[in-house]
């Protein structure tokens, strides 16, 4: 039999190429282009080499924003992962409770990010917000628009409220894939609840948890909308995380070159952390 030669098939791939070019390659290359040049508008560019990269890497402003970012991500991971697993463990495994819990859990995930920010902004206002007013009423001096500690507290609480559900749902799926025979075997051995968790549930959840940590790391490391609406990065620069700082630099000050360099550095940090974490977690996994 002769093979029919038909090059028309290539046309089917064209839309993908065009899409990827427009949503990834071209914008990214524009950023790369900006990061090595200086511009004053009017499409006038001057070559600057690696100057912006050096400037960003050495600037105190970047170090501070990165520090805040790392602290924020670290804290929310530390809260959300154990809390998510904990909630998943207590969720019912059958009966009418399952759909109820699943729907309740997915609710926060369905709310648009800027709405979450706005909600929490109003919720936490010290004079009229339920949370802010209550805290003041019971004797705390709470004002997230003026006190950095309170701003952090509110931002973290908001993120925990918004995103713990994701960890819960992933852990729940992981837990549900464990065959009942494992629990019976542990029971027969006389294993304690903790041992059952540590040696059966946790190893069996390893893959979904890796995914949950990666997703939560990336999302929280790139967080923008919610703190922007909630605190606008303030008071002062107290909650100005990397994206907020980046947007300030690019659009507020119109420093396109340094902002582009910062974007790339930012991008590489996320990529590097994800790669290192994933490789470490999957080091001992057998490929199947």
């Amino acid at each position: 039999m002769n093979k029919t030669i038909n090059q028309k098939a290539w046309f089917f791939v064209v839309p993908v190429f065009v899409l990827v070019a427009f949503n990834a390659a071209i914008p990214l290359m524009t950023v790369v282009n900006y990061s090595f040049q200086e511009t004053f508008g009017n499409n006038v560019f001057a070559w600057e080499g690696t100057r912006w990269f050096k400037q960003i890497l050495l600037s105190e402003r970047f170090h501070d924003a990165l520090g805040r970012q790392i602290a924020f991500t670290f804290i929310i991971l530390l809260i959300q992962i154990p809390l998510g697993i904990g909630i998943a463990l207590t969720m019912p495994k059958k009966g009418w409770g399952v759909p109820v819990c699943l729907i309740l859990m997915s609710m926060p995930l369905l709310i648009p990010w800027n709405v979450v920010g706005a909600m929490w902004n109003i919720f936490a206002l010290p004079d009229i917000g339920f949370l802010g007013y209550s805290l003041n009423a019971i004797g705390f001096d709470f004002n997230f628009t003026q006190q950095p500690g309170d701003a952090w507290f509110t931002t973290i609480l908001m993120d925990v409220w918004h995103w713990t559900s994701l960890v819960v749902l992933l852990s729940y799926a992981g837990l549900n894939s464990i065959q009942p025979a494992y629990y019976q075997a542990a029971e027969i051995d006389g294993a304690s609840r903790w041992a059952t968790f540590r040696y059966i549930e946790l190893p069996k959840m390893k893959k979904v948890l890796t995914l949950a940590i990666l997703l939560r790391f990336m999302d929280s490391f790139m967080i923008y909308t919610e703190p922007f609406v909630l605190t606008g990065g303030g008071p002062g620069n107290a909650t100005a995380f990397l994206s907020i700082d980046l947007v300030k630099m690019a659009l507020g000050q119109f420093d396109l070159g340094p902002a582009a360099a910062m974007s790339l550095i930012y991008f590489f940090i996320v990529l590097l952390v994800c790669w290192v974490f994933y490789s470490l977690m999957m080091k001992n996994e057998v490929r199947s």
Binding site: Q179, A181, Y182, Q184, A185, Y199, I200, P203, K204
Partner: peptide, 8 residues
């Protein structure tokens, strides 16, 4: 059991 149940 029918499934191979061991501590992973």
């Amino acid at each position: 059991y029918q499934q191979f149940i061991n501590y992973p």
